[in-house]
């Protein structure tokens, strides 16, 4: 019999909220063609994953919070590089519509 685990009452709702936010992010990536909105949806997905990490860190120790720290760093780096790429694409064909981005189409 393992020792009784501490009960975190908000664990379930937080995991559910995390799933809802992640799905909204995926739906946004699938639905929109605007590259900037697409990037915002990716940030939304990263935030949802952060929420899951923090919810589980209530029971599993501080490692989850440290992982969130690293995810935030990666998200910031990704936003900087991604927005620079969007700027380059916009200068190339005067639009951020992803339908016009087919340079590698062959």
């Amino acid at each position: 019999m393992p020792p009784a685990a501490p009960i975190a009452p908000l664990l379930g709702p937080a995991l559910g909220l995390s799933a809802v936010l992640f799905t909204l992010g995926v739906a946004g990536v699938l639905l929109r063609r605007n590259a900037i909105v697409l990037f915002m949806c990716i940030e939304l997905m990263l935030n949802a994953v952060n929420l899951a990490f923090i919810a589980l860190a209530q029971l599993q120790g501080v490692g989850g919070q440290i992982m969130v720290f690293f995810v935030m760093t990666v998200a910031a780096a990704e936003a900087a590089v991604g927005l620079a790429i969007i700027l380059a694409i916009f200068r190339h064909n005067q639009s951020v519509d992803l339908q016009n981005v087919n340079l590698l189409h062959g």
Partner: peptide
């Protein structure tokens, strides 16, 4: 989400958010 992080006991992460 930052406020929720504080509720879940991750105050520093909430501020960083």
């Amino acid at each position: 989400l930052a406020c929720i992080f504080v509720l879940l006991g991750a105050q520093l992460i909430g501020i960083l958010q």
